[in-house]
Amino acid sequence: MKRPANRPPRPSPPRPAPARQAALRQGPGEPAAGRPVLRRTLLFGIPAIVALAAGAGFFFMLRGLRRGTFNPHGVPSPLVGHRIPPFSLPGIDAGGFSSTEIFAAGRPLVINFFASWCIPCREEQPVLMALQAQGIPIWGIAYKDTTPAASAFLHKFGNPYARTASDAPGRASIDWGLTGVPETFIVNNKGVVVWHMAGPLTRRLATEVVEPMMRKLSQ
């Protein structure tokens, strides 16, 4: 496109007055000075807004990570709000349990999936022991584990479970949408999953989320 007239060869004429120069650059009917200010505002404002939004996002992510309420690898469970899947599993030291028994319990339960080969489960076990000491019923399911290994794990790191079962093939756990161990579900008195957590429970999560929720569900 055409540029405003090139400068003629020497001897150069005196430059046009600044007002005229501005008028040459601007289209017809445009306010003088309006555009550069708008442009500077946009050039500064848009990145500033994006940076602020990103900063706020990262702040909440980091806070959630520290509190244990946000897990970047966590997969939202479609089971939340639905009844537990039907299953029947053998036990570890004593008899196992089935979905029927969870429904029959008629009270809120914490269902925890663990494994002897799972290192975060070792860290989680004291948290579960503390919950059990508060009188919260926890039922445990060993995922892809042998009975002797799961039994040895419970003797070594503590057994917080009111009842235990073993899902050695891992097929029932697929129906629960399990993606790994440990994972914890809270089930209400009607056998409906109300809360799910992938990853180990922390003390903070236990006292700030699990305990209040179990109290509320027990009322």
Binding site: V75, P76, P78, D175, G177
Partner: peptide, 8 residues
């Protein structure tokens, strides 16, 4: 599978 793990 979606019923168990969601659209993820």
């Amino acid at each position: 599978l979606v019923a168990r793990y969601g659209n993820f």
